[in-house]
Structure formats: C-alpha cells, structure tokens
Amino acid sequence: MDVITQPWPWYIAGPLIGLTVPVLLILGNKTFGISSVLRHTCAACIPANIKFFRYDWKKETWNLFFALGIILGGFVATYALSVPGPVDINPQTVSLLQQYGVKDFSGVLPQDIFNFGQLFTLRGFALIVVGGFLVGFGTRYAGGCTSGHAIMGISSLQWPSLVATCCFMIGGFIASWYLLPFLLQL
C-alpha cells in the first residue's frame, strides 16, 4: 500500500502520462489534449453565435468525459490514495517563496492565497481570476496546452508544437521570475 499512498516519482508518473497518448489513439482514434474541453464547454453552453464555437461539439463528448474523469481521479487520489502532507519541494524554492510572502506549504497549493476570501483582494484576484483567464485565452490562441502541444504534439513530431512548448516555458520563466514576486506582494 505504501507504494500507492506515497507520491510517485517522475520515472513512474511520466511514462504513465505518456501512455495516455497511444491508449486514446487505440481506444478511439483520439488525439490527447485537455484544453479543447474549454472550447467545447463554450460551444455547448455559451456559443453566442460566434463562428469559432459553431461546430458539432457533441462529437467531442469523450473530451468532456475525460475532463470529468480527471476531476473524479483528483478526488479519489486525494481522499483515498494519499497520505496528506506537504509537497516535498526544494528548500531553496521554499525560502524563495517565503520571501515573497507565501506562508502555507501544507498542501498542493498555498491555501493562504488560493481561497475564497482572497478572491476579493488584488493579489487573489490576479492569481486566481486573471491567471485563469490567461490560461484559457493563451491555450486556445496557441492551439493547445501542455498535453496537446508538449506531450501529444511533440510525440507526433510536429514542430509547431515544439515552438509552442518553448513559448510556454519562456512565458512561464518570465512570469515566475519577474511577475509573480510582484503579484505575491500585492
């Protein structure tokens, strides 16, 4: 049981994530990608006659089920298969984040920042709402997210995906080095 309840090392988790690619292809000829689910949700709920959302989203319901599966999986993994405790991150990262004002290191994300009360502070709004907006906008503009581009795209040797992945990383580096310290201290 220990093997299950302990966090999994990268050399177990990574290959398992990689195997999602052939599994989806073989089960249903589907290309792995999660961010499309955001688009399908728009198409299903609020198409508003926008051309980009007028398509037969019902053909893509597997994607919505996949998303529900992730939520369910998150629930099962957290409540049934885990020993609660802080994520074992590099002490250097901890001290750096402490300098920026992060106090809570007990869960998978800093709960002193990511909670409903913080939503109405500038810092919480920037991190939770603006951050989410950038994820949704950027991923669709880029044509995919970490799963669709970095994993599925590069796996099938598509160079635009490599370009997009490099840009994800560049954007991320810039934000976490220069933008986040500022945002966390708002």
Binding site: G131, G138, A142, V163, F168, I170
Partner: peptide, 23 residues
C-alpha cells in the same frame, strides 16, 4: 503558437496549473 504560447506560459506560472491539473 508563439503569442498564445507566451500568454499561456504566464498563466501557467501564476496559477501553477494548466487545464488538466486545474480540473
């Protein structure tokens, strides 16, 4: 791929999650 990628990267670092992990 480039512009959107950069925007997504910024959002990824701030929220600490891409769409899958958000779910």
């Amino acid at each position: 791929n480039v512009y959107g990628g950069l925007i997504f990267g910024v959002g990824w670092a701030i929220t600490g999650a891409c769409p899958g992990p958000l779910l």
